[in-house]
Nucleic acid binder design. Structure first.
Lengths: 153, 153
DNA sequence: GTTACTGCAAAGGCTTTGCAGTCTG
DNA sequence: CAGACTGCAAAGCCTTTGCAGTAAC
């Protein structure tokens, strides 16, 4: 990511916070910068452990509360998960998920055709649609090689 | 549901258990029958509370363990969730979800066109696909009426 | 009779809440 | 300076684990 692009992203972030009445603190800047660089879908704990290397005094609670706040104002998202642990997604652009039933990994992928699938009119009538995504469940290559899940087809 | 149809469903269920080496117990029968009648996506606790009215002596642990076992052998599914509480889905046929960001409700809907969306070849090459579903995020009518979420577009 | 399941209890993990001190605007 | 944020600690849920007794096959 080029330096001016990074600056631009942070400017948008700051404007977004201000627009929602959130104060700009060093912790929030660090947390946002950290999660922006994540390609996976980290849990609050994963973000905490990563950020701790640069900001040893930050607390887990601040990280967790901040991530929830960010999700609330829409600068990040929470992703659907089967594991019982909440995970966050810094990518708010439309994209889709492959979800491994064995290891729980969630892998992003993009596809213009899937982006374009129409929302049925019946849904539009009874729901205020913000976003849509295709979620594919199955096994990642690694887990498939290791023998798959215990399941009858 | 007609009586013979109900019987048929239970027969399939029993055969499925036997094929996976699971014993048929009154608890398992009751739990399966209970969740079959659910149109929502109950948590283990919800199933427990519902089943308790008919089987006051059943324990929460049995319900929870049984639901996990059922999901393992594929007679039910777990659904992706944002809330941190695991939820189960008795409907193993392909269908899609509307997910309310405010109240967390997950509403099923069916759509032939969405069932038919093709999985990209790039995904097929790096993933063993079991199922796919379209997940629509937004607000249900009730929550939309109550003012929606705090979020900047 | 053997193997697996149930129910109870305890432990474990993640998330949420309350509060005093501190910092942003 | 006022209101909001941070960090610490404790409490709250939900889920998982171990074990003895019991039931299915």
């Amino acid at each position: 990511m080029a330096h001016d692009e990074q600056t631009g992203v942070m400017d948008v972030f700051i404007a977004r916070c201000r627009a929602n009445g959130l104060k700009i603190t060093p912790q929030r800047m660090a947390i946002y910068r950290s999660i922006l660089g994540s390609v996976d879908h980290p849990s609050a704990d994963a973000v905490y452990r990563k950020i701790r290397t640069e900001h040893p005094t930050i607390s887990f609670d601040t990280v967790n509360r901040t991530l929830l706040k960010f999700a609330e104002i829409g600068v990040i998202r929470t992703v659907e998960s089967h594991s019982g642990v909440r995970r966050f997604d810094p990518d708010t652009a439309p994209h889709h998920h492959m979800h491994c039933l064995q290891c729980g990994e969630i892998i992003d992928f993009c596809d213009r055709d899937l982006d374009a699938v129409p929302v049925p009119e019946a849904v539009l009538n009874q729901f205020d649609v913000f976003a849509k995504r295709v979620v594919i469940s199955g096994l990642c290559l690694k887990c498939a090689r290791e023998g798959g899940v215990k399941r009858e087809s």
